[in-house]
Structures are given as C-alpha cells and as structure tokens.
C-alpha cells in the first residue's frame, strides 16, 4: 500500500507568555492511501494539535509532514475538514448550497459542473433538495451532514475530522458514522478522525493511533482486524470488537 500521509518525528511546543507547553514529542506515523484512521487519547493530549499540523494551520516545531511525498507548508490542496462545531464552521448568513459552493471557487469549474457537484454532494449525505435552507433552519445532525457535503464537494483525497459527532445525539451519531463509512467506500478518501469515543474508533477504522503522555507520544497503533462492511448491530456485538475496545480503552487510560 502506498503512503498518503507521512508524519516524521513531529514535535510541537506552544510558546505563550505563561510558558512553553510541550504537546507532541517526536510523533511518527504513516497513513496508507485510502485507509480510515482514528486518533484517540485522553482530553488535552494533543489530538487537535496533530490535526492542525496536518491541515497546515500550524507548523511543527520539529519534524515534517509529507503528503504523497511532498512536505506541507500550509493548507494542502486536496484536503478537506469537518469540525465538531458545525454551528461555527458553517456560515449562518449563507444557505447550505452557498456554503458548499464557496470552497469550490478555487477550482476552475463551469457553472453547471459546480451546481452538479453541490447537488451530488448533498445527495451523498442525504440532503437532496435541502440546499436552499440556511444552516440554522436545520437540526444539528443535518448541519453536520452539510459540513460533510461541503468537504466532499471539493473532491478531497484526504478528509480530516475533529470529533465530528461529539455534539449530536446517539441515534444521529450512528447514522453519521455509517455515512462516513459509505463516503470512504464511494470515493476511496483517506480519512483521519479524532474521537474520544473508543467504540466509535473501533467501529470505523482500519487503524487506531493512541496518543498518550505529556508531551504526547504514539503509544500504540492498533490494527482493527474486523472485516468491512461493518454494521452497527453485528460489528458492535462481535467478540473481537469487545476485545479491541477493551485493549484501546486500557491504553488510553494508561493501564496497559
């Protein structure tokens, strides 16, 4: 398998007037093309920081991040993000359609191609015909679907999500989990997702990266050897699922 993202010896320190916080220490990891990777770890360990480095919003204090062999030095092309806080990442003054259209302006698309992209992305997330609504006219789950549609519309090769389902109810969460699995299947997008829900990590991923410590290191990489397609009922009741979640849980807690 080819490598989509290579994280090589990445360290990160935040320098503030109160002092220096050493958050990540020599983190190395390679993400295979097309795989689904979950990043887990205790709160405040540095998961968001790692995603920010990957999205090119910040530069690591040491080490480098390569996307398909190229060192990134800013938000890379072909990367799309979905954040937890959909109310803050969608623009309330634009309809969902126009929210999705905005990032597409970077790509030289004809008007017809652009509206086709918008419509097909909305359809992919189950929001067909709802593009004319404003985000605040939608439920939380629908807004997060809209964020996913915005990400898909740019036809990304890498999708980065930071606790995307932390603010929706349990049933919606299951639906959205299956949605991102479908999206990965349909487009073969390499997906990285931060979650604090270990069950969710096991259910979705090919691999789970466990961050631990202060500063954080990669404590372990767990391969989730449960075959696809997965199903909310069968997969979550499989004995292997229980084993894996217990193992990951213990590591996140620093018990193993």
């Amino acid at each position: 398998m080819t490598t989509a993202i290579a994280i090589n010896g990445v360290s990160m320190e935040y320098v503030t007037p109160e002092g220096t916080t050493h958050v990540l220490d020599n983190v190395s990891y390679e993400v295979s093309e097309g795989s689904f990777v979950a990043i887990v770890g205790p709160s405040g360990v540095g998961k968001t920081t790692l995603l920010r480095l990957l999205s090119g919003l910040q530069k690591p204090t040491a080490g480098e991040i390569l996307i398909r062999g190229e060192r990134i030095s800013g938000p890379p092309a072909g990367l799309a993000v979905v954040l937890q806080d959909y109310t803050r990442s969608l623009m309330p003054w634009l309809t969902v359609e126009r929210n999705i259209a905005l990032p597409l302006k970077n790509q030289k698309l004809s008007k017809a191609d652009r509206s086709e992209r918008i419509e097909s992305s909305l359809e992919e997330v189950g929001l067909s015909g709802q593009g004319g609504k404003y985000p605040w006219q939608m439920s939380g789950g629908m807004q997060q679907r809209a964020s996913i549609a915005r990400a898909l519309a740019v036809r990304p090769s890498i999708l980065v999500m930071d606790e995307p389902f932390a603010s929706v109810d349990a049933q919606t969460r299951f639906d959205l989990e299956d949605l991102v699995l479908k999206v990965r299947d349909d487009f073969g997008i390499t997906t990285l997702m931060v979650t604090h829900d270990i069950d969710e990590a096991v259910y979705l991923s090919d691999e789970i990266v466990v961050l631990h410590g202060r500063p954080a290191k990669v404590r372990d990489v767990v391969t989730v050897d449960i075959p696809f397609p997965r199903s909310q009922i069968q997969t979550r009741n499989a004995p292997r699922f229980a084993e894996l979640r217990t193992h990951v849980y213990a590591m996140v807690r620093g018990l193993e």
Partner: peptide, 20 residues
C-alpha cells in the same frame, strides 16, 4: 473557527474578508 475552516479550504484573505 470559521476563519480556520476557510483557511483549511484554502480560501484567501480576500474571501475571508468578504464572506466572514
């Protein structure tokens, strides 16, 4: 959060001013 989302989608300063 919105401004960073825009940066991730590679929308430049002009778009950030106009749309955010």
């Amino acid at each position: 959060v919105l401004l960073e989302t825009m940066r991730c989608f590679r929308m430049g300063l002009a778009k950030q001013i106009r749309y955010a």
